[in-house]
Design a protein around this nucleic acid. Sequence first.
RNA 1: UGGGGAAUAGUGUAACGGUAGCACGACUGACUCUGGAUCAGUUAGUCGGGGUUCGAAUCCCUGUUCCCCAGCCA
Length: 566
Amino acid sequence: MLSKKDENTRLDFIRQIVAEDLKTNKWNGRVVTRFPPEPNGYLHIGHAKSICLNFGIAAEFGGRCHLRFDDTNPEKEEQEYVDSIIEDVHWLGWDWGEHLYYGSDYFEQMFEYAVRLVEKGKAYVCDLTAEQTRQYRGTLTEPGTESPFRNRSIEENLELLERMRAGEFPDGSRTLRAKIDMAHPNLNMRDPVMYRIVHAAHHRTGEKWCIYPMYDWAHGLEDCVERITHSVCTLEFENHRPLYDWFLDELGVYHPQQIEFARLNLTYTVMSKRRLLQLVQEGLVGDWDDPRMPTISGFRRRGYSPEAIREFCKRIGVNKFNSTVDIALLEHCLRENLNKTSPRVMAVLRPLKVVIDNYPEGQVEELDAVNNPEDPAAGTRKVPFSRELYIEREDFMEEPPKKFFRLAPGREVRLRYAYFVTCTDVVKDAKGEVAELHCTYDPATRGGDAPDGRKVKSTLHWVCAERSLEAEVRLYDHLFTKENPDDVAEGMDFKSNLNPNSLEVLTSCKVEPSLAEAKPLSRHQFERLGYFCVDPDSSEGRLVFNRTATLRDTWAKIQKAQERRK
RNA sequence: UGGGGAAUAGUGUAACGGUAGCACGACUGACUCUGGAUCAGUUAGUCGGGGUUCGAAUCCCUGUUCCCCAGCCA
C-alpha cells in the first residue's frame, strides 16, 4: 500500500500545481477546469487524454469541469461535430452538469472588451491585406515593421470597429489588432489580429456577426468569463501564453493560469484531425467511426470500453515533452477490463465440419457452460451439442508440427464443456483440402472431465452445426504498417504506410445460439479467439461482429518463431 | 542564425541533494477444461563533458539532440 507521501509525490506536475494552489488558497478553494474542443471534427484518443485530465482533476479536487465549444471559426465548424463531441465525452463517463458553454455565447462581451482595449489605445483597426500583414510581421530572426495604420486615433478606430461589425467592409479588408510590439522576439506578440471579417453563417449565431474573434483573443476571455482556475492546454500554446496573459492584464480582469502539457502520440496511429479527415474524405476508411480509427466513436464501435480508455489515460501520465506511447499499453488496458467484464461465448470463425460417428443421430443435448470464469455472478448458460459440429480450421492439422497440441489424426482433445473426442478419419475434397473430420466421443467424459483422470493436451471451442447462427465477423489490424506512419520514403506521405490488411471480412462464421439476442455494441469474448463487439450494421437475423482485440496467443508466437527458424 | 520548451531501460512514467522504482513489452518457468486469465522470475536506464558536494537524475557551467512559433486556423 502507498503511504500518503507516496501518493502525493505521484501526482503529475499539473495536479501538483492544483494541489499547491489549494494549499495556498490561491483561488479561494475553487478548482475549475474546462475541456474546450473546436467543433470541427470528431474527438480522438488524444482528446481523451485531455478530457480525463481536465474532468479528472475537477473530480479529484472537488471542483468542476466545463465542456466548452471553442466555436470562433464559422467556416470550419458544424453542429454535427458538436453533437458527436457531447456524445463522446458522455460515453467516456464524464459529466459537466449545467456547465455546457459556447465561446460564441460570449461574442457580445468580447466585443465590449475589444472596445475597451481600443479606448485604452491598445488596439487598432488595420487595413493591411493578409499578405501585407505577413510581410510586415518580419521573420524569426528579423523584427517586423509597424503597420501604417497603427497610429490611427482612438475615435477613428472606434468608428471603424463599429463599421466592421456592421458589415460595411468585405472579407479580409480590415482587422482589429492588438498594439503590442512589432519587434518582439515572440512572433505572437507582433500586433496579433484580434478580429477578422468573415461574412459566413455561424452554426449557432447565424448571420448575427460578420467579424469573428481569433483564438488568442477569444480563449483567455472565455476562461475569464467562466472563472476557470487552471486553463490546461497542449504544448504548442506555450508560445501564446504571454499573449493570453497580456490581454487579461491589459483588461485588468480575472486571470486564470494557463498550463501546457504534451499531446498524446500512439504507435501505428495518426492523430491529427487534418489527417483523420483526409482518411474519411478519401474513402480510405468507412467514416469517422470506422473501427480502425483512433476516434472515440471508432473505439466505441470497435468494442473498447470507456473504462479501458480512462485507465489508459491514467497510466500514460502527463508531461511536457513529446513521447509516443506504445499502442500495446492501450490494448493491455483493454484486455484487462474486457477479461473481467465480457461474457464468454463460443464462435467458430473458419468452420471445419466434424461428425461424431458414435453419437446418436438426431440427438441434441444441452450442456452447461460458464459465462465468465472471472465473475462467478455471471452464472452459466446452456449450449447445444449434437452429432455434427464445427470447429476452427486452424485447430486441426493433418501433420502436426512440434508443440501443436490441438486435434490431429488419432489424437484426443477436449471439446470445451462437452466431451473428449478422438479424430478417426479425415475427408478431403477434390482439391485435396480437408473437408470434414470424423471423430468418436467418450460418453464418460460428459461435461469435459475424464473419470479415469486421463489428460488431454488441449481444449477446443466448437459450435453445434444445426443450432448455430451464421454471422459476419470483421477482423481488424493496425491501420498502418509502421510504428510511425510518418516514416515514409522521399516524396510519399503517411498514406503510403496504410496497412492493406487492416480489415478482413469473414462471412460464414458460426456462433452459438445464445447470441441471437445480442444487442448492438454489446461485448463478448469468443473463447480462445478474442473480444468481439456487435456492430450496429447488424439487423434482425444478420449478426455482424467486430473483433475488438485478440486474446494473447502463445501458439501464434511459437508458430512465428518456428517460421523464423526455417 | 530570434524566441519559447524539453531530454531517465525498447516504450511510457516516478524519484523534488541521500538505495534509480513502477507499468507495458520481450524472454523463462509454474498453474490451467480458453495455448486466455493468474502467479513467480529474467532482461534493460539517468544525452555528452566539466564542476559544486561526504553524496548529483536532481544544483552550476558547457556542449549535443529533439519539439513549437513567421494563419485574417485552433
